[in-house]
Simulated scan of single mutants.
Amino acid sequence: MDIIPVIDVARGQVVRAVEGKRSAYRPIETPLAATPDPADVARGLRALHPFRKFYIADLDGIEGRGRNTHLVPALSQVLPRTEIWIDAGSGSRSAARAVLAAPVATLVVGSESLESVRDWHDIAAEAPARTVLSLDFRGGEFMGPDALLADSSLWPSRVIVMTLDRIGSDGGPNVELFERIAARASGRKVYAAGGIRDRDDLNRIKQAGAAGALVASILHAQKISAGDLKQIAGR
């Protein structure tokens, strides 16, 4: 099972996510790094465990303030031989192409950034093997074109179930929602994101069919040990 650390970046600094309320995000304070600089935080996370993938949320790109184009090149120096997933709010083929110009980048497309299924088709055609779809939910409501959620044949080989309002909360993952999506995924790898509090939650989503989980708070709060990470990754 893949455990994928999440690094949320706004205005050049790593921020702590709180229930998906991005206006409330503040620079992170973590025992893993002396500063909220993305490279420092990435080094601290990598010291915990040799994670194979990292997920980067470029919140400036997602919120329309302009993409942090230096992020992937800079982090690839700190995280060699690591697959870097990045969501920069790409809602068009040209925006997707700009992200994919970095050879180490895997493009994450959040459904909240898509206006239509046609936009998704255009983006996914650019580099299907390097594109992940994030099905975004807030308060139980899907954020994105309804047809994209309804027709699983549109989904790529890797899909994230992202419950935005549970990110950085103590609410726990929405296992029921995850199970519904995973049951329709037809052999695709499905990843859970939002609300994961501890190893018990990781076990629950694994039993629900998760190929992996995106996490942040449990790493910075040291609610999971290096030994746990090694054991989970080995299963």
Rank of each mutant, 00 (worst) to 15 (best):
N203V: 05
T69F: 13
Q231I: 13
H121V: 04
Y191M: 07
E141H: 13
A42E: 10
R204E: 11
G234P: 01
M143T: 07
R11D: 14
Q13S: 14
V99L: 11
L149I: 08
R11K: 14
L202M: 04
D60N: 09
D201N: 06
D122Y: 00
V41T: 06
E83Y: 05
S113K: 10
I62K: 13
V190K: 03
S90H: 08
I218F: 00
A182N: 07
R11C: 14
F54C: 09
A98Y: 03
D60C: 06
V161W: 05
A211N: 11
I196E: 00
N68D: 15
V190D: 03
I86W: 08
S157W: 02
I28G: 12
D119C: 11
H70C: 14
A57I: 02
D40H: 00
H49W: 07
A98N: 10
V104N: 13
V117C: 03
G20N: 07
V132F: 02
A192V: 09
A233F: 02
A24K: 12
A216Y: 08
G12H: 06
E63Y: 11
I205M: 03
W85P: 06
A24V: 06
R199P: 01
G212V: 01
T106W: 06
S152D: 15
S23W: 08
G168K: 07
S225D: 07
Y55E: 12
L164A: 08
S111H: 08
M162R: 03
R65Q: 13
G110L: 11
R67L: 13
S157D: 15
V159T: 14
S169K: 00
P145D: 07
A96F: 04
A47N: 10
G110Q: 11
G212W: 00
E63W: 04
L75C: 08
K189H: 09
P173Y: 00
L45W: 08
P5A: 07
K223I: 01
Y25Q: 04
A213S: 13
V78K: 05
V190Y: 02
E29N: 14
I167E: 09
G66V: 02
V15W: 09
M143I: 09
N68L: 14
P5M: 04
K189Y: 03
V109D: 10
G110W: 06
A185R: 07
G195V: 02
G44K: 02
I56D: 05
R11H: 14
A216R: 10
A42C: 14
V104P: 09
E126P: 04
L133K: 06
K53W: 12
G209S: 06
W155Y: 03
V215N: 00
R22M: 09
R43M: 04
V6Y: 01
S225E: 08
A74N: 11
D8K: 02
V99M: 12
L177H: 03
E179V: 08
V132Q: 04
L135G: 02
F178T: 00
A124H: 15
H121W: 02
A213F: 06
V14W: 04
